[in-house]
Design a protein around this nucleic acid. Structure first.
Length: 302
DNA sequence: AAGACGAAAGTGGTTGA
DNA sequence: TCAACAACTTTCGTCTT
């Protein structure tokens, strides 16, 4: 999409910017700096942030609304609007103005970035059915990411999704990386990349993801009797004692344990059903459940 | 026909020299 | 940084119910 050629990259000055019309996101093609377009549709999501102090990590709304005049271009050439040179006596004053302007503009960009990111987080979060506390946590991470200068060169989407993923993990939520990829339309690579950067520079201590966190969701997705959930958890614990859990994908272990319990308890689900629901392949479910059955002397013959 | 099975080859991430 | 490695996936032909 074409962008007015008066817009320049704050970082390198390049005019080669491309715009994503959906997100209102502007990315410099030369240095990768993420800028934000002027006209942003805040959407209804913003409302939910207001009036709630804890969640109110973003910029005030009027930062977005007022003052389009401030973004008036001061050209770097010492010419006035008619093209005449500016007198030497005025030049120093202009220097000062420019400096001031670029400073004001960069905090404005930060605010815009945050605003867009927060509504993105809200959108993704509600799209995936995540709780409000998770999206609030994610918003906190995003703000920290901005403060630590991690946004530069990354897409807002990817970082927002990474923050959500992180927040979800922090509270032991049952969303895998694949779930995030599906639920956010952010590619796997940018997501994991942002996630790693985020995790590293925020030095967050995260407990490793266990199969247990998926059990509840899987069981209800497959409409299993509620009491089977406990049995699945049990089986996972037993498997852990036999060293069949660590180093394996938690979703795979959960899916396999669920398969075994469902069959044992007379509510069988096919491997395909479970595979489709969990995003784990049938082959992996087989491998896991064979291991488990072998180690625990379980026979599935009816 | 549907479901389960397992071999073989390929992929992406981790680890250790 | 690269190679080795284990877990996982994809694909596909075969067996079982």
């Amino acid at each position: 999409m074409e962008v007015r050629d008066t817009v320049k990259c704050d970082d390198c000055g390049s005019r080669d910017l491309s715009r994503d019309p959906v997100r209102g996101e502007l990315v410099c093609q030369d240095c990768g700096l993420v800028l934000i377009d002027q006209e942003i549709d805040l959407g209804p999501e913003w409302r939910s942030f207001e009036g709630d102090d804890k969640a109110r990590t973003g910029a005030a709304m009027n930062v977005m609304m007022h003052d389009k005049g401030l973004s008036t271009e001061l050209d770097w050439q010492n010419k006035d609007y008619s093209g005449k040179s500016i007198s030497t006596s005025n030049r120093i004053q202009f220097q000062r103005l420019r400096k001031w302007q670029s400073r004001a503009r960069s905090t404005k960009h930060m605010d815009r970035n945050l605003t867009v990111a927060f509504s993105e987080i809200q959108r993704m979060s509600s799209n995936m059915g995540l709780s409000k506390s998770i999206s609030e946590e994610a918003a906190v991470y995003y703000r920290k990411a901005v403060e630590n200068n991690l946004i530069r060169g990354r897409s807002i989407d990817a970082m927002a999704a990474a923050c959500l993923y992180l927040a979800n993990q922090k509270v032991g939520g049952a969303r895998s990386l694949d779930d995030m990829v599906k639920g956010t339309r952010v590619g796997r690579k940018p997501l994991t990349r942002s996630y790693k950067v985020l995790k590293k520079s925020l030095r967050l201590r995260l407990d490793p993801v266990t199969p247990e966190v998926y059990v509840n969701r899987y069981c209800s997705d497959l409409a299993l009797r509620p009491e089977l959930e406990e049995k699945v958890l049990n089986l996972i614990e037993q498997s852990r004692e036999r060293d069949l859990v660590d180093g394996r994908s938690p979703t795979g272990v959960a899916a396999a344990a669920l398969y075994v319990v469902a069959r044992m308890e007379g509510q069988p689900r096919t491997q395909r059903e479970i595979a489709d629901m969990s995003g784990v392949t049938e082959v992996t479910i087989r491998n896991r459940y064979k291991e488990i059955c072998a180690a625990l002397d379980i026979s599935l013959e009816d």
